[in-house]
């Protein structure tokens, strides 16, 4: 009796397998799960929703199913992507450098190598910001003031162990930047603290700073070139400070999905990122779009890994 039961079971399993075989026709032939490591309605979600609109334009036959896995600054969701089934039907959004820092400093359950990189979609540069009524009017004045009055300047950062923190460590190493650092939980708190006068200056993302632009004076961008959102703001490089720092958003799959699927995803995402309507939508939403292909992104990740290892080791 028992034996017969198991035979039946084995037969059923075999049949299921056979039934599943022809399903591997053309990728994608079922909906693709999109893991977002932050809450619904957040900045990462908004960006992915814009992507979704154009995915539906280029791949109308299959939709995205959004799954939100927030927690621990993205680490929970990034881990979910890394551990997802490698069939190409689970992809997700990541934030850089969060992912690299978590992998290196927080005993996270993933490494930089655990992902197949599809492409980068956003490059949100860090800005040096003061209040509009501040006496400090340029990045040079800020750095000079900090040096002349060690510890006097209070600088707000989101963190710790974040992109902001990384930029701060870099500035301290390169310029000697003796200030009092204060960490905030998020950009909203940080903006409030600057406007309320608790801190004198802050390092903040362009996207976050844009919310309260009326009250703030953006002194400089830590980017290679000026940004379309604030064309009048110079870069730190222009002013002779070699500091680059940004938060990037990218899309990834777990490492080891079928090569053809990865190629399809990379191709489609590239098409989306080049679409003029997409770029217009991104601009409206205040998301600084910057496309970088998978291979270039991986290279960036690896160099970041070295940089972060050094920065936090010497802290």
């Amino acid at each position: 009796m028992k034996q017969r039961f198991f035979t039946t079971l084995a037969l059923a399993a075999l049949l299921t397998l056979i039934a599943a075989m022809p399903a591997q026709a053309v990728y994608p032939d079922k909906p693709v799960t999109m893991i977002i490591a932050f809450t619904a309605g957040g900045s990462s979600d908004v960006q992915a929703r814009i992507m979704e609109k154009y995915w539906n334009k280029y791949v109308p036959q299959q939709k995205w199913v959004f799954v939100y896995k927030p927690g621990a600054g993205g680490a929970i969701g990034f881990g979910e992507i890394a551990m997802a089934r490698k069939d190409g039907y689970t992809i997700g959004g990541i934030n850089i450098p969060h992912l690299v820092i978590q992998a290196l400093t927080q005993k996270a359950q993933f490494k930089v190598d655990d992902f197949d990189y599809i492409c980068q979609v956003v490059n949100d540069p860090q800005c040096v910001v003061v209040r509009k009524d501040s006496k400090i009017k340029s990045a040079k004045e800020l750095f000079d003031y900090a040096k002349a009055n060690p510890g006097k300047l209070k600088v707000g950062l989101v963190g710790p162990n974040s992109g902001h923190h990384l930029m701060y460590l870099d500035a301290r190493k390169k310029l000697g930047f003796p200030v009092t650092e204060v960490f905030y939980k998020g950009a909203a708190d940080q903006n409030a603290a600057l406007l309320g006068g608790e801190i004198d200056a802050m390092f903040g993302n362009l996207n976050d700073v844009m919310r309260s632009l009326e009250e703030m004076n953006v002194l400089a961008l830590a980017a290679e070139k000026r940004n379309d959102f604030l064309p009048k703001v110079p870069t730190l490089k222009e002013q002779g400070y070699n500091i680059l720092s940004d938060i990037r958003r990218a899309f990834v799959a777990p490492k080891g999905i079928p090569a053809a699927d990865l190629a399809f995803l990379r191709e489609t995402f590239k098409k989306i990122c080049m679409d003029p309507d997409y770029l217009k939508d991104m601009k409206t939403a205040g998301q600084p779009a910057e496309y970088l292909d998978g291979a270039a992104l991986l290279k960036h990740m690896q160099s970041l890994e070295t940089e972060i290892r050094n920065a936090f080791a010497k802290k």
């Binding site: 908004v46 903006n191 409030a192 309260s212 632009l213 009250e215 601009k283 939403a285």
Partner: peptide
């Protein structure tokens, strides 16, 4: 503070702020 400064006064206000920004509307006085 959400409408006038772009600083949400509660978690829900933060979500509404996100929706506003996605529409390209700048908070501020």
């Amino acid at each position: 503070p959400m409408l006038t400064l772009g600083i949400p006064g509660s978690a829900v206000a933060a979500v509404i702020l996100g929706a506003l920004l996605a529409k390209g509307i700048q908070p501020g006085f």
